[in-house]
Design a binder for these strands. Structure first.
Ligand SMILES: [Mn+2]
Ligand SMILES: [Mn+2]
Ligand SMILES: [Mn+2]
Ligand SMILES: [Mn+2]
Lengths: 219, 219
DNA sequence: ATAAATATTTAGACAAGCCTAAAAATATGC
DNA sequence: GCATATTTTTAGGCTTGTCTAAATATTTAT
């Protein structure tokens, strides 16, 4: 199997992530949005990836990864998340800074460098955002079931386990609020405007669209 | 100034390195050889770089970097050498392994990552091969004058300061002979076939083409 | 069920960076 | 100094990944 281009790797990764929590096909529009290209460009790339047997592509219907396409996606994702964690652990970057850098590095690190980073990090299972890091055999590690902050019961106390956003501004905002992975909080009330929480030091009303990105260990 | 492509950066770096120890122009053939492309491809890239004022290009004569072209070359070289050193110092790679990886990483690290690596490494001046690392202001650091092993006087004792080759097999051979940067040796005799040397544990005759890559502090 | 809106594909174009083959310029050897 | 060899450039082509505009398919709403 010949090496794939960075662009091809990114398409496969996006397809994986867009279909990760469902069985449905991924549409051309979704991909165009996520990859920031025009739909016509998506169509032409999908044809190429289908010819390489990396995706199953039904025109006008959508696309799904084949097993080998999924392996490529998981490999890139492993690179991405190991790099993010390495940058935070060993080079003092914040979780809000690492995504962009990892987006480029993920395509150019050797398997040997991947292995050395994994080793130095102690073969970690989750990245700085709580995203699971695929294992060396390209399986997603078991993660405890998580519940969205929006669906966390009133009066329940729990710990932030994952934040599903790479937006710098949003993550920076969480930094200022001291709402990071591992932080304990109690849900005071679920309200129409969001979730009112109690942290060690403060009370906030987290707006719905912010809360929807925050995940707690399920009760 | 728009961002340059990886290929453009590599051309500028090669031009810099081919003219580093002389004032002469760099020829298209030299570049084609070093970049592993055909001469026709070089010509077309030289036209582009000239239009960007990164090189002075005289058709049929050769090429030289402009001041801004030189800055780009030094920036890439700084990335390359910091990465090589980082990989050896923090990820246990050997000096024979790092060039290839750095060749790709040099184009995708951010200025922030460059700065963090430099800091963790203590703002180093030389890479694992003894090559000088351009400073953050893109000047080559002062290096003590070096003398090639072929021109080191008989009976002189000195320390290996630089090895000007990135060839894996050659560097591996030096590993086995325990001829690394910092190793002390004494020149027993300069012979037609090479240089006979005495290390802490052994005597060797280093063949001419090997010796020509090894540099000692000048007497 | 049909019209309108939306999504997708096709067609044709373009920039980058490479190639081969041929033409032109330069360098070398006698 | 001239013929030959070498180097360099030009001309034309190819692939990758993108774009716009137009055609077509699908979905949605009445
Ligand atoms: Mn990427
Ligand atoms: Mn992440
Ligand atoms: Mn390079
Ligand atoms: Mn080096």
């Amino acid at each position: 199997m010949q090496p794939l281009s960075e662009s091809q790797e990114d398409y496969l990764k996006s397809i994986f992530q867009l279909s990760e929590n469902s069985t449905r096909l991924v549409s051309a529009m979704e991909l165009a949005d996520r990859m920031d290209v025009k739909p016509a460009s998506v169509t032409s790339m999908l044809k190429k990836l289908a010819k390489l047997s990396l995706i199953d592509y039904t025109p006008y219907q959508g696309v799904a990864l084949t097993p080998s396409g999924k392996l490529v996606a998981l490999e890139v994702l492993r690179h991405h998340r190991l790099i993010e964690l390495f940058l935070t652990e060993f080079l003092d970057f914040g979780w809000e800074e690492v995504h962009e850098q990892a987006e480029k590095l993920e395509h150019v690190i050797s398997e040997e460098l991947e292995a050395r980073m994994a080793e130095k990090l102690g073969h970690p299972t989750h990245d700085p955002h709580g995203d699971p890091i695929p294992t060396v055999d390209l399986e997603l590690p078991e993660s405890p079931l998580l519940a969205n902050l929006l669906r966390t019961a009133e009066n329940h106390t729990g710990v932030i386990k994952r934040v599903t956003s790479q937006d710098r501004d949003f993550l920076n905002l969480l930094n200022r609020l001291e709402l990071n992975i591992g932080v304990e909080l109690r849900v005071i009330s679920q309200e129409r405007g969001g979730v009112r929480i109690q942290t060690a030091t403060d009370q906030f009303l987290i707006p719905v669209d912010m809360a929807s990105k925050i995940w707690m260990e399920a009760e």
